[in-house]
């Protein structure tokens, strides 16, 4: 909008909006700071046992300590495993969803299995996965895949199925083949569904990776957490959890960034 045409009322409105936005950001940061300060204070005064619940300054110290001890390696391992499980889950999940969308018969046959697999806690398969894939990175990626796969299939399939039948009929009247219907109508209509499922998946595969690292690993943030717990160094546990939270947030933002790029390509509005 042209700045010179902004009326006095609009200026007031815009200012109010901006003030509210600033207030929200301020409160968010303030809340975090307050929490850290209270935690530090409580530990210093002795309200809480800093040996068990740790304390911000000790966490920072530990972070630097661990940083000297291959912290980047642990982060890299966990992020790699998560992204690998995530990518595999997304690709295989989409392929499976396409197959199920394509053939009504196959999808009807598979339905009860999908329902059971969806509600089954995949972590229960841990021992089986370790025996099949071996006690190592492969098993961890497998675990991440197991957790994210079924959700992707269900999510994408229901997206494909809810594509407007009118749009499909329109394409059919032009003589579109099933492949063309998918390519030109169903898939582009579901770009949003895809990204919504990716956003859920990045979190789910992280769950799988950490669970896997709890079971078998020689490195990774999950390994650090278990190690910290075993030697009763809560500082390490807390520090790892904080890094994990940061890594999860960065990966989530990565998916959002990817979504923006793809949307620009498709020029969605």
């Amino acid at each position: 909008m042209d700045k010179s045409t902004v009326s006095a009322e609009r200026a007031v409105y815009l200012k109010k909006q901006q003030r509210e936005k600033r207030l929200i950001t301020l409160c968010r940061i303030g809340f975090l700071l307050l929490f850290i300060v209270l935690w530090e204070l409580a530990a210093a005064v002795g309200w809480i046992d800093s040996f068990i619940l740790s304390q911000p300054t000790r966490i920072v110290k530990t972070l630097f300590n661990v940083a000297d001890n291959d912290l980047h390696l642990h982060i890299a391992v966990t992020v790699f495993e998560t992204l690998a499980g995530f990518a595999l889950g997304a690709v295989l999940g989409c392929i499976a969803a396409v197959v199920l969308w394509w053939s009504d018969f196959v999808s009807k046959v598979c339905e009860p299995y999908l329902v059971v697999l969806n509600s089954l806690p995949k972590i229960a398969l841990g021992p089986v996965i370790i025996i099949i894939a071996g006690a190592g990175t492969k098993a961890i990626i497998f675990m991440a895949l197991a957790i994210s796969l079924v959700v992707t299939v269900m999510e994408m399939l229901s997206g494909f199925r809810s594509t407007s039948p009118e749009l499909i009929k329109m394409a059919v009247t032009f003589g579109a083949q099933k492949r063309q219907i998918f390519q030109k109508i169903v898939f582009p209509a579901n770009i949003n569904t895809l990204f919504n499922s990716l956003k859920i998946n990045i979190g789910l595969s992280l769950v799988g990776v950490i669970a896997g690292e709890f079971l078998v690993s020689k490195a990774g943030l999950g390994y650090l957490i278990v190690y910290g717990g075993q030697v009763f160094k809560m500082d390490i546990v807390m520090a790892s959890v904080i890094i994990l939270a940061a890594a999860a947030a960065v990966m989530y933002e990565g998916v959002i960034l990817l979504q923006r790029l793809v949307m620009r390509f498709y020029r969605y509005r």
Binding site: S164, E166, L167, M170, A171, T173, F174, K184, I185, R269
Partner: peptide, 24 residues
């Protein structure tokens, strides 16, 4: 065949929408 709704594809420009039938 023309249906009740215009069924234009929101992610395509007018030009790309017009070409859909020819494309198919």
């Amino acid at each position: 065949y023309m249906l009740q709704n215009d069924n234009l594809l929101e992610w395509r420009t007018i030009w790309q929408n017009v070409l859909l039938g020819l494309e198919i």
